[in-house]
Design a protein around this nucleic acid. Structure first.
Length: 976
RNA sequence: GCGGGGGUUCCGGAGUGGUCAAACGGGCGGGACUUAGGAUCCCGUGGUGAAUGCCUACGCGGGUUCGAAUCCCGCCCCCCGCACCA
């Protein structure tokens, strides 16, 4: 007898994975005779190892694939690898540069797969070429996938930097351009001054944990001497409350002549930024120290004269290095003014008379419900802010900003903005100032940032940026129409998609660096990673043919794809032109036509608003309607011991650990059963350990049952076994429905947990050996039904009981038929009555103060059965609630008439919902006999020496009161 | 702010118009087995009760209904998304 341990499970898992692979059991080819099901799960990004959260998504996809195979579908479940974009390149760059943190991190990653240290270093060295990063992880992720038992057709794998894939994407972009969905325009990006190139999140130091956003400031021109001081703000509507100007006295400013001859005064740092944002010439005339401005005056576009005062919080490296002061609503301004009032010497130092402060009065211009005084003052007090260098000012500012933006209204002090909500006023004044040449837009990073090579990040303008125009009207309209017809599981995510389709506007779809495919008509641009992975499911249908036919990338011209995917063109002509044999072209066309559309795409919810929506839209733009996607199913994430998995927490469990430390089937069962699709799976070691014990004991039962001869049906007539067969087949039927509706968790509860409980129950009734015989009767059907979740264990059991060499694998089986002849609702109802009786009996027994040795069970009187039968007809089906009418019908029955008062009571309680009408028709005799048959069982369970069963009609007077309370499904127990 | 999800018993989490004191699991209490047990199994876990019941809970406040955790209105709180990034 095998010792059942995790190690044993791992052994059989490896064994079967090996066999499945050798026999290519998951390879699927077009076969017009068979119905097809084309399932995809998005390919992983191969910049590092996957974790168990990814594993959940792939396993759920795999369960669906396996279930569909059991239903007789020809299932295609392919996989590939995504390498496009910056992350992999960035990792490679960092490793080449000798970045310690990255090297250490990747060393731990490589060690997950390789235990020879020399080899680890060799691999790490190879990562200096980005394609090696991609292929190393792609190869190992494939192994991880195999090790958790995914039923993937690996012949179709590819990665997105391969020339054949590039050709496919080129075709896509030619088509998009033909459709006029590709547009050129201006765009602002994060840009590194050192490397003179745009930098993505991956290139920016801490960009992943503390992302850098692009903020749009308005730099307003204030008249100053021979030109303008540019003071910047995110809140131009506050111009109406401006009281003074701030300058950093220690910073260096520069006087600049711009293209139209205007003179601007701005900080030295900001000149560099402006040069990257405006295409015209800037002529630096002279530098000025900030203190030189102090005490002088500017004039705002509204005509207000404002004095320039010193403030240390003003950062010359933030926008223009000047800010105007609006102390009513800006906590920084308010605090800086307070500081000056407290320390008048500061002003004297710059030769300014402190009395000037007396004329500076905050001017309230924004009303927010619940704030009566100055909003800035309110938060200064709330956060207990001491001075202008207090770090809490940031939070205080954000609070005011948020409150005023969403809930603020401009008051009568705000000139032409008066009465407008802030949200409108801001846009209005910005447009106006810019239109009148009184301000410019200035883009700035949301925080100070450097790239991983320590170069300073600013915001720069990119001309000729390529965009995908998702705002295109026909495109959106068609998408919305088709989307209504798509299957979305769980349905609650439908709205998120609809919103995403609405939100999408222009989206930059190419960048200047990275791995991937170049735009064929503008070769300096590389198609960005979310834009080159929208229709690749189509590529799966032909990629294995491209490879096996040794087609060169150069042969894959747009005409080839036009023919395969759209049926355009003459294959003979294309064949002549490209050298691809005509039958190969036609084979690819047939394969595509067979497999498409994608029947189901399964993935995790974060992809909804980007990838999945692009996926739908691109199909709609590029393919004929019959090839548009049919459905999407989604699952939530995995957390670990109640906490989000994060590199920074160090609690990420790599997928590779599953096959090393746990077991594939254990993992599969856990992630599929511990939460519904829309619930978060919490990976908790104690729970996993518990499930492990359960799974091993399940395995034990199955293995023991295999030792019983299939022909041994000696127990089949036992009531407990008949009952067991009934509940089993009802559950089997139910499980199929659940799976068809993607209720994977409920299916496992029904087919796994509940069946195990039923086996425990019959063990008590008929003993372990007979229980195993009963299990043997359903074993084959049971393991087939469980094979989608635990394919390895199922296969192992299968291999021990299957006698048909043609059906060597459980993968070749079909979902078992429900054996209706075994379903016996009456028996189940009787068993329920018995079960309830026992549990009630136990409860009552506990209440008794004195020990008891016998139980008298009273089955309800015959007439009560009649009443409930009547109710079942009239009440359950018809739904009448009319007591009088019901009583009228009761009176017509001779047998019931004499009990009319009690009947009325029962009816009342039924209407109140206190008594349930049993769904199955039973007679008093049925119940009586069933209880008789199970007297010993009842005695054992209630721990009494004797059990007597009588019917209410024969109850002796001393117990008659109690006996009267009996109901057909609720006999009375009297202990003595 | 907008959009989405959610607030249920000690905890995690079922339940979306009536069999609900509330699935399932954890924790806790008791018992069995045992040299022992962190292993396994059984029982219990709102209150009350010598009886097969009764009373009470579902964020807060109203309403609809014979009947509401479930439907409607208002309010409070928590989580996620709001993009160009895979």
């Amino acid at each position: 007898m095998e010792k059942l341990t995790l190690e044993y499970l791992r052994t059989i898992e490896r064994k079967w994975q090996q066999i499945w692979k050798e026999r290519n059991i998951y390879e699927a080819d077009a076969d017009p005779k068979k119905p097809k099901f084309f399932l995809t799960v998005p390919y992983p990004y191969t910049s590092g190892p996957l974790h168990i959260g990814h594993g959940r998504t792939y396993v759920l996809g795999d369960i669906i694939a396996r279930f569909k195979r059991l239903l007789g579908f020809n299932v295609l479940f392919p996989m590939a690898f995504h390498v496009t974009g910056m992350p992999i390149l960035s990792i490679s760059d960092r490793i080449s540069r000798g970045d310690r943190k990255t090297i250490d991190l990747y060393r731990t990653y490589v060690r997950l797969y390789i235990d020879n240290e020399e080899e680890v270093e060799r691999v790490l060295e190879s990562f200096k070429d980005p394609i090696n990063v991609a292929t190393f992880f792609a190869d190992n992720i494939q192994k991880d996938f195999e090790s958790i038992g995914l039923s993937i057709d690996w012949r179709r794998k590819f990665h997105t930097a391969e020339p054949i894939y590039n050709k496919f994407i080129e075709w896509q972009y030619y088509r998009l351009k033909d459709l006029d969905l590709l547009k050129k325009g201006t765009h602002y990006v994060r840009y590194c001054l050192l490397h003179k190139q745009p930098e993505g999140e991956d290139d920016i130091e801490d960009g992943d944990v503390n992302p850098v956003h692009i903020q749009e400031f308005v730099a307003i021109k204030f008249k100053y001497e021979d030109g303008y001081i540019l003071a910047s703000t995110l809140r131009p509507e506050t111009l109406y409350g401006a009281t003074n100007m701030w300058v950093n006295p220690n910073a260096t400013y520069v006087k600049v002549r711009v293209h139209n001859g205007e003179i601007w005064y701005i900080s030295r740092e900001s000149l560099i930024k402006l040069k990257h944002q405006y295409p015209f010439e800037f002529e630096a005339i002279e530098d000025t120290i900030g203190s030189a401005f102090v005490g002088k005056y500017v004039e705002s576009p509204l005509g207000d004269k404002l004095v320039i005062l010193p403030a240390s919080f003003v950062d010359p490296d933030r926008v223009t290095g000047f800010v105007y002061s609006e102390p009513a609503d800006a906590p920084y301004d308010y605090a800086a003014l307070m500081d000056l009032k407290r320390n008048p010497d500061t002003l004297r130092k710059y030769g300014v008379d402190p009395s000037i402060l007396d004329s500076i009065k905050p001017k309230k211009i924004i009303e927010v419900k619940g704030i009566s005084g100055l909003h800035a003052e309110y938060v200064i007090n709330k956060y207990n802010i001491k001075n202008q260098l207090d770090p809490s000012l940031q939070d205080a500012t954000e609070e005011v900003y948020r409150e005023q933006f969403y809930n603020g209204t401009m008051n009568e002090n705000a000139g032409e903005l008066a009465g407008l909500p802030v949200i409108i006023a801001r846009d209005r004044i910005r447009e106006k100032l810019i239109r009148e040449n009184k301000a410019i837009i200035f883009y700035e990073t949301s925080r100070k940032a450097v790239c991983r090579g320590k170069g300073k990040i600013i915001i720069a303008r990119v001309d000729n940026q390529w965009f995908l125009d998702y705002s295109s009207e026909w495109w959106k309209k068609k998408t919305k129409e088709h989307f209504k017809r798509m299957l979305i599981v769980p349905e609650k995510y439908r709205k998120v998609f609809e919103d995403a389709i609405d939100w999408l506007k222009f989206r930059p779809c190419a960048r200047l660096r990275g791995l991937g495919t170049r735009l064929p008509f503008d070769k300096e641009w590389l198609i960005e990673s979310l834009s080159d992975s929208t229709i690749y499911m189509a590529f799966y249908t032909i990629v294995h043919i491209i490879r096996s036919s040794n087609i060169d990338p150069e042969q894959l011209t747009p005409e080839v794809f036009d023919f395969i995917f759209l049926g355009h063109g003459d294959p003979a002509a294309i064949s002549t032109k490209t050298g691809i044999p005509i039958d190969t072209l036609e084979k690819m066309r047939r394969s595509f036509e067979y497999w498409y559309p994608n029947d189901l795409r399964h993935t995790a919810t974060p992809h909804i608003s980007n990838h999945l929506t692009f996926f739908i839209m691109h199909h709609i733009a590029l393919f004929p309607e019959k090839y548009w996607p049919r459905g999407i199913s989604l699952n939530e994430l995995v957390i670990c011991e109640g906490q989000k998995m994060a590199k920074s927490r160090g609690n990420v469990i790599p997928l590779v650990d599953i096959a090393k430390k746990y077991s594939a089937d254990l993992f599969r069962l856990y992630v599929a059963s511990s939460a519904d699709l829309d619930g978060v799976v919490d990976w908790r070691e104690v729970e996993v350990a518990r499930l492990e014990r359960s799974l091993l004991s399940f395995m034990r039962i199955c293995l023991d049952a295999t030792k019983i001869e299939e022909a041994d049906t000696s127990v089949i007539e036992k009531p407990a076994v008949r009952w067991f067969l009934s509940v089993f087949y009802r559950h089997l039927e139910n499980a199929k429905t659940l799976l068809e509706n993607f209720k994977i968790r409920d299916y496992i509860t029904s087919m796994y947990y509940e069946i195990i409980n039923y086996i425990d129950k019959i063990k008590k009734r008929i003993g372990e050996h007979d229980a195993l015989k009963a299990v043997r009767l359903i074993l084959k059907d049971w393991i087939i039904a469980l094979s989608p979740v635990i394919p390895h264990i199922a296969e192992e059991i299968w291999s021990r009981i299957n006698r048909d060499p043609l059906k060597w694998s459980i993968n070749l089986e079909r979902w078992p038929e429900t054996r209706k002849e075994f379903i016996n609702e009456r028996l189940e109802a009787l068993e329920d009555i018995l079960g309830n009786l026992i549990s009630l009996g136990r409860e009552l027994k506990r209440l008794l103060k004195s020990p008891v040795s016998s139980a008298l069970i009273v089955v309800a009187a015959e007439w009560k059965f009649e009443v409930l039968d009547l109710l079942r007809e009239k009440f359950l089906k018809g739904g009448t609630r009319d007591l009088k009418q019901m009583l009228g019908q009761v009176r017509e029955k001779e047998s019931l008439r004499k009990h009319i008062e009690q009947v009325a009571e029962i009816l009342k309680k039924v209407f109140e919902g206190k008594i349930k009408v049993p769904e199955v028709e039973l007679t008093q005799r049925d119940v009586y006999e069933y209880l008789q048959q199970n007297r010993e069982h009842i005695a054992r369970e209630l721990d009494v020496a004797s059990v007597e069963i009588i019917i209410e009609e024969t109850a002796t007077p001393d117990i008659r009161d109690r006996a009267q309370r009996s109901l057909p499904d609720r006999p009375i127990i009297v202990f003595a």
